[in-house]
Design a protein around this nucleic acid. Structure first.
Lengths: 385, 385
DNA sequence: TTGAAAGCGCTAACAA
DNA sequence: TTGTTAGCGCTTTCAA
């Protein structure tokens, strides 16, 4: 795994006195001795040099080397420069594992904000980018963990690493038991995007899913739709349940037949949307509009509709939720509910940093408003059937 | 690659005999003792329990506990279950720092692919999401590092962490010295997206920037444009230089006056595009088309054009490069060059994994083809001036 | 300003 | 199957 020793960065050169004057003859000799010793090191070890090796080459104790390299007081200027130069030439890099293990006690912050997200969906990608922008200003590093295919082995290991190096974590996770267990064990503040249910132990920031879905339903009903199909999200998530609930409430309040067959089970994924739409299209009579619980599902639903030889919005109206960039790119553009991801990201970062400062703070939760975005995919239903 | 045992998922409960029969009285007592001891631990420490504590509570040695927790052979079924239960109840989590430090020798792979990217720009976000999708299938974890505002302190520290835990790194970095130094010091395979220049020490995968820019220039010239302004990218990057070179070559080959004033210096950022466009718009005679080196710059340029009271493409044609989702969302849609990011991500992951397997492999580099995407932002120049 | 000793929490290698 | 010993590479603490 260890590659060849690497070229020493150019710059280091400049810290050499460009032309040593004659008085430093003995200094010169010492440098040469050091150099040859260094070569032997490189040949022999071929592995990352340790602090002890730097110290030996520099002719000091490990502690002195440590102090110099960590830019701590208690080392004379002369010695400090020597050590830094040698470390640089030998390509020394502090071993994180050792350093963190050792300085556990006074340990403290690394200036790292952790994020967990399944980084393969557009939604997660957008949210993470939003968080990235938000973190930018606050001078923290960002470390994002994305687990592999959730069907696989337990996810814990790397997640634990994140918990152990980050000052706090923003979680946008698949809501599975394993992840929750790991999160719960984390000894750092956690903020989630998308709350998780009644007994959510973490503060969260979330779009107003219920209100958004109500807006969308109102829009469809005002267009004249009476049979509206719904493709659910992943009902383990509060967001999915809220959107479904809004759908049901809207129909009920309008006194429309609440035909339970109109609800197709999806999972927030494209395939779920495709299959859900196929199911809905086979109903008799066919719904005149389909509300997919998120934009990704709507993409799948659109494919199913086209495969069935129907057109949007001519034969059937289609709507989503999230307003990802892809919603605007669809033909026709997808009517959907806009979630202000940039704002949500900023809020999450702010909340997290507050908790990092003041871990005891009461869990505050934030619901951000959403907006209906009407595009071409919704229209009045055909009058003739 | 030891699969850490994970905190027992709910299921584990079921392995408890639901109702212990009377014979286990003594067993019961032991459990109680353990439980109270555990409480004391929790109260006393209030910090992460260590392996030693688990071992003590379980009445075994640290090694036995270690073996059980790491799912290694050499522990009786009975004892193993005991230990796992206790570890779970005490909320034990393996200390990564200690584990990696200790098992350094036999160390080996963590199943982690690292990525470095400035996660606040749409381009980086898209690329990272593409890599996320690509990684998904191969069962590796993904860890993305995004440095804070580049203007700040040296970036090295967390980058080093990434190098020390990942099996390999895909770099989409700001091309600054510090990052390169850190990359060069990494003792793991590195693949870059966007090559960095002649002497690039790493294998890379990149879109065909030169060919793409030529396609775009041909398109503009075929529309009849003769004065075409260019807003450069960040010229520290090969991609920016390639696009600029293509621009120059296209003009030269067409025998058009290669007015050097037509090149405005940008930086791939929105602000750079804005300022570059302002400069170009002030030229006399004004260019009839502006080619911004990437879509982000084009967004800035569009703003400048509108502020100047001009319209796209009526008064001036505008084009970008990358075909980010936002290009399709602009009004009018932005003519640009499509980079197949998903494919590039897959390729990078594949190349990296190959090098992880076979570090000695010769650095292979891949240029992927790009496509011209014509949207509404380009049109023939006005005949009358 | 420097150094020596004693761990941090874990595991490899060996012994029982 | 289980335990013991000796570190991993670094920092803390204390002494010089």
């Amino acid at each position: 795994m260890n590659d060849a020793i690497v070229p020493r960065p150019k710059k280091a050169q400049e810290s050499h006195p460009p032309r040593e004057n004659a008085s430093s003859e003995s200094g010169r000799a010492r440098v040469d001795r050091e150099a040859s010793e260094r070569e032997r090191e490189a040949d022999a070890a071929h592995a990352a040099p340790t602090l002890a090796e730097i110290a030996r080459v520099a002719g000091v104790s490990r502690m002195t080397a440590s102090r110099a390299i960590n830019n701590r007081p208690g080392v004379s200027q002369q010695v400090r420069e020597d050590i830094l130069r040698i470390a640089d030439e030998m390509g020394y890099v502090i071993n994180w594992m050792a350093q963190r293990l050792s300085s556990r006690r006074s340990g403290g912050s690394n200036g790292i904000i952790g994020v967990t997200a399944q980084l393969h969906t557009p939604f997660a990608g957008e949210v993470v980018t939003a968080i990235g922008s938000a973190v930018r200003g606050v001078g923290q590093d960002l470390l994002v963990y994305s687990p592999p295919d959730s069907a696989g082995r337990p996810p814990g290991r790397v997640l634990d690493l994140l918990h152990q190096v980050a000052d706090g974590v923003i979680a946008i996770l698949p809501y599975q038991g394993d992840y929750l267990d790991a999160l719960a064990r984390a000894r750092i503040p956690v903020v989630t995007i998308e709350r998780r249910g009644e007994h959510d132990p973490f503060p969260w920031v979330s779009g107003d899913n219920y209100a958004g879905a109500r807006l969308l339903m109102r829009h469809l009903m005002e267009l004249g739709h009476r049979r509206i199909g719904f493709i659910t999200g992943d009902n383990r998530m509060e967001s999915a349940r809220d959107r479904l609930r809004a759908y049901g409430d809207a129909l009920r309040e309008a006194g429309m037949a609440d035909d339970p067959r109109l609800v197709a089970e999806g999972n927030y994924l494209q395939k779920g949307g495709f299959e859900g739409a196929n199911y809905l299209l086979a109903l008799e009579p066919r719904p005149t509009a389909i509300f997919a619980a998120n934009d990704i599902s709507a993409v799948g639903a659109a494919a199913a509709i086209h495969e069935a030889g129907l057109s949007v919005p001519g034969d059937i109206s289609l709507a989503g939720f999230d307003d990802l960039p892809l919603a605007a790119q669809m033909k026709p553009g997808l009517t959907t509910v806009h979630q202000p991801l940039a704002r949500m990201g900023r809020t999450a970062v702010k909340m997290l940093l507050e908790r990092v400062m003041e871990p005891a703070a009461a869990p505050a939760c934030v619901t951000v408003p959403v907006e209906l975005v009407v595009r071409g995919s919704t229209a009045a239903p055909q009058l003739v059937r």
